[in-house]
């Protein structure tokens, strides 16, 4: 299959190394000052400098040509992660207490090599790469995010699903002692998501373990999360503890909570509105006015063939 790739990022838009470093230096210095102020800050100690650097990261050609990546602060202080609360600031405030080391990912179901993988062993056989993707939330806001991770297809090829497997189901950690949002209810925990196997095998589908060249902060779904940039944000399940290969279409958390509003596919689609608000436009974080949302979040050239012949109004 020939995959048309995003044009490479223009050199003028890459943050110069010196600026990047001085920002990090600033954050480090600010971090020292913040120790004394830790109570009032939204920013409780997960500045960029505090995260461990990921080694041997390959720059990939998956870049967003027309927009700059959002700042580390934007990406890490405005999150939907209902296990920590429903406010955008809750994950940054409460996810710090989550224990992400050690971490195990269970692979089971219709697969040749089911196992409980320690995260390091799960990642190690694969080449880490940096990919800058657009991220479009179902709430009609968006960001541009420089992830670090591995192609989901590489992992799937390694664990070898058998011929009957048609879907893969993902499950998020459910640990009430560290996740205050679980007390609030709202969704049927643990959070689950799913992809059709051909969607999961698509070269754009990605498992992220890092952000801005460093380990993923907890509020962004550490230590490992899904990134499928042509789908709404909630499909990009965080803090994955299980991948199960199935013949039946898996149940997904938001679809269970409100089937009329959230379908299994949840592809970004400006022509299919959420029942309560329009999906035709989005607010790019940091901009005053909304702009038109692109079909498949701008990845139509790559992913449209997956849905050939399907009525996307019916399979929303």
């Amino acid at each position: 299959m020939l995959i048309k790739r995003e044009p490479e990022i223009r050199s003028s838009e890459i943050t110069p190394e010196l600026v990047y470093r001085s920002r990090r230096e600033f954050l480090r210095t600010a971090g020292v000052g913040a120790v004394g102020l830790a109570t009032s800050s939204m920013w409780l100690g997960d500045d960029l400098a505090a995260q461990a650097v990921l080694a041997n990261v390959k720059k990939s050609t998956y870049m967003v040509a027309d927009d700059k990546p959002h700042s580390y602060e934007d990406i890490t202080s405005y999150n939907n992660y209902y296990e920590f609360g429903t406010q955008k600031s809750d994950p940054a405030r409460y996810a710090g207490q989550l224990t992400v080391k050690p971490w195990t990912v269970k692979v089971d179901g219709l697969v040749a090599k089911p196992a409980d993988y320690a995260l390091e062993d799960f990642i190690k056989p694969h080449q880490l790469e940096e990919r800058t993707y657009r991220f479009r939330c179902v709430e009609a806001w968006s960001m541009v995010i420089p992830w670090v991770g591995i192609p989901l297809a590489d992992v799937i090829n390694r664990v070898q699903p058998d011929g009957k497997a048609k879907y893969v189901e993902f499950t998020t950690l459910m640990r009430p002692s560290e996740m205050p949002g679980l007390r609030g209810g709202g969704l049927d925990w643990p959070y689950t998501e799913g992809l059709r196997l051909d969607e999961a095998m698509h070269p754009l589908a990605f498992l992220a373990v890092g952000l801005y060249g460093k380990e993923l902060p907890n509020q962004n779904g550490a230590p490992i999360r899904l990134v499928v940039p042509w789908k709404y944000g909630f499909k990009n399940i965080k803090s994955i503890v299980r991948m199960r290969f199935t013949e039946e279409q898996p149940q997904t958390a938001w679809n269970k909570a409100n089937p009329r509003e959230y379908g299994f596919y949840s592809n970004v689609n400006p022509t299919v509105d959420h029942p309560r608000w329009s999906q035709a436009t989005e607010r790019v974080i940091g901009q005053l006015f909304k702009r038109k949302t692109l079909m498949f979040n701008g990845y139509a050239d790559q992913v449209a063939p997956l849905y050939k012949g399907m009525d996307l109004k019916k399979f929303y």
Binding site: D273, R276, W277, S278, R283, L288
Partner: peptide, 21 residues
């Protein structure tokens, strides 16, 4: 201004289609 940028048709559409609006 910021969500609809004075697009009256879009606002009418929004009101008629969505009970939230």
């Amino acid at each position: 201004v910021f969500d609809q940028f004075f697009d009256v048709m879009a606002i009418v559409d929004d009101v008629l289609k969505r009970k939230f609006i």
